[in-house]
Simulated scan of single mutants.
Amino acid sequence: MASDLQRIQSLPTWLVGRLAARGRGMVADAIAVEGLKLMHHAVLAATAEYGPITQADLGRRLAVDPKDMVGALNHLQKEGLVLRAPDPSDRRKNAVTVTPEGTAALTRCAALAKAANAELLAPLTPDEQKQLMALLTRLHEAAENPA
């Protein structure tokens, strides 16, 4: 008979959570060589995609507390990866843009994250990897758009 712990550890939520934590750790370790944390990577990617964008809009898009956003942007600006300047449409706000150095760092981080994910999925065959991604995508979409 399975113990209470074994029952918990056999739940999909437990398994997915443990795997997600392992994967996040692997990606975090990989991009650390760029001097970036996961939050920095997300802010840099969102800035590249949506910029120029106000700090407030960036925080809303990423669901990041304003003080945490300021800290992340301070780090990215200090490293020369983003630039903050008064927003032309509302000079009381700062608009954030990615620099060419930021774009290059983002490209390197994407390659590092891809390699970390490949390592995470290495125990699976290529077909199993595709199947897992399809199933995870389906679950994610269902959770985002409940019927």
Rank of each mutant, 00 (worst) to 15 (best):
E144C: 01
R108H: 08
A142S: 10
V43H: 01
E119W: 12
A95E: 06
V98F: 00
T103A: 14
G51I: 01
P86Q: 00
D29S: 03
D4R: 07
A63E: 05
A20D: 12
P126K: 01
T125G: 05
N145T: 08
P88Q: 02
R24T: 14
E144M: 12
A95S: 11
L11P: 04
E119D: 13
G35L: 05
M133H: 04
D57Y: 03
A20R: 14
L106R: 09
G102M: 12
L58A: 04
V27Q: 00
H140S: 01
K78L: 03
A63M: 09
V43D: 05
T47E: 10
W14R: 00
L5K: 15
Q131E: 07
A143K: 10
Q129V: 15
L62S: 13
L112I: 06
P146H: 09
R22N: 12
A115W: 05
A95Y: 08
M1G: 13
D87H: 06
L124N: 11
Q55P: 02
Y50I: 04
L19H: 13
D4Q: 10
L81F: 04
R91P: 03
A42Q: 13
Q6Y: 10
D29R: 05
Q55E: 12
T99G: 06
N145I: 09
D29L: 01
G59M: 00
E128G: 14
V98I: 04
V43Q: 01
L44W: 08
G35N: 07
E141Q: 07
A63C: 01
Q9L: 12
V98W: 04
